[in-house]
């Protein structure tokens, strides 16, 4: 790799963001927090993907990743909205925001 340019710095940041998101997905029981972590992870993937296409001396970043990222952003919002609707309904019915197997020491209400 020839020197560290702007695209590379942001691509590396994307890799770090993916790690932060995955960590949140693994340790957070609250489903809304998992959703935030999922979104941090997905924007990390976008940043790594898009910034990789912006390395080197080219004036403008590669348009193909840009188009795919815009598509991805919209799909991520659609998935987020579906999860929010599901988790609010779940919380309404059970009074909880975490799945039962994620709550150590607490059994399903009989």
């Amino acid at each position: 790799m020839s020197g560290v340019d702007t695209g590379t710095i942001f691509a590396l940041t994307g890799a770090v963001l993916i790690g932060i998101g995955v960590y949140g997905l693994l340790v957070r029981g609250h489903m809304l927090r998992r959703l935030i972590a999922f979104n941090v992870m997905s924007s990390g993937i976008f940043l790594m993907f898009g910034a990789t296409g912006a390395r080197g001396p080219a004036a403008a970043p590669d348009p193909v990743p840009q188009a795919l990222i815009i598509t991805g952003l919209v799909v991520a919002l659609a998935a987020t909205a579906l999860v929010v609707a599901l988790l609010l309904r779940y919380a309404q019915i059970t009074g909880r925001a975490a799945l039962s197997e994620d709550m150590p020491g607490e059994d399903d209400p009989a």
Binding site: T6, G7, F10, N39, S43, F46, G50, A51, A54, A59, A60, P61, Q66, A67, I69, I70, L73, V74, A76, L77
Partner: peptide
Amino acid sequence: THLGAFDVALAEAAIG
């Protein structure tokens, strides 16, 4: 915006 991906910047601000 800094990367020059203005279309994505607009989408990220509005959607993300």
